[in-house]
Amino acid sequence: MSLFMRNYKPNSLATVYNVKLWRLNSTTADSVMKKDDNEEEEFRVLDILKKKDRMQRRVVRRADIQPDRADRMALDQKWGNVWPGPKTFHPSSVPLPLRQGYVSKGQAPPGKKANAELMKIPNFLHLTPPVIKSQCEALKQFCTEWPSLLNSEEAIEKHYPVEIITSDYCHASPSIRNPLARVVTLRFKLSTLKLDKHSRDKFIRLVGERYDKETDLVTITADRCPVRVQNLDYVNYLLTACYHEAWNVEEWEKEKTEEDMEYYEWNNNASKKSLVNWFMRTKNEFKELSEDEYRSFDVSVIPNAEGYKDAVSSLMNDGESDETVRKYGDSVRKLLGLPEKKVV
């Protein structure tokens, strides 16, 4: 490519001007007229569609057109001066042998002149690496130093847990206002809030679908007020209100039964009861335990009970899958002291 470009532009700096003649084309006109005379003598054909006339319409071309300025450009010029801002592609200013467009069989793609394909696509000729570099240098005077302790993604997340997302719009119109600019989105990780089990559960119930379990992100969007500042205040208010509400424990919340549980709590369920009963039976203790005693029974005294507990919980909470069932089976084998399942 580079070799081709060098060949393409043989002009050195010394001869900046191309020596192409900016000439008048009067000789071509003469030759055209001569040709007409010759054709007159041939057998005349009835030309119903007047095709001949249409073909012969001569395009009047201006004589004083200079050659492309791309031809005159020095090899060591600063491209940023030639193409300082975004604009539509123009073949006479770009000294590159570009080609683009539909390739018919056995032909090269159309060249850069009069090529709508090249004009359609957005170009980044104004953002070449040296230009970006020099622009960054120019903007450095307005930049402050990055806080030294915010050196990692984790540190940033730790110190600035709340994100506010807004959009600004730029358009050509007498008014620079855009109603979409009022929308404010607040986003944070739920784990960064100080919540206990109950309040976390309540918080999640309060925000509803705004909480994404996969990423642990809570996203609150407000667009009901006409101005961005109001929406910003509003999302902050929503966050505060939800947080404090989550910590409140209402009287009726104590009436929560096993049916209301949002997840499977092994300690409260029959599985633990059976395990404890089985354990005590193996110890030959026959005691009648109350509900609370069952619930607070420390299963760590039972060998391998922790694994069993986890397996049952995950089977109930995460749903039945090969993985959970296998884990359940293994834990039961361990608990009962049965041999490992043989892999056939």
Binding site: T144, P147, L150
Partner: peptide
């Protein structure tokens, strides 16, 4: 080391002027 340093004061067109200063003239 955590809170951002104070903003460097600048006029409404200072950035544009700084960017414009990077563009020289093109004899062609």
């Amino acid at each position: 080391g955590i809170s951002p340093p104070p903003r460097i004061p600048r006029g409404p067109t200072d950035i544009l002027q700084a960017l414009a200063a990077t563009v020289g003239n093109d004899p062609t």
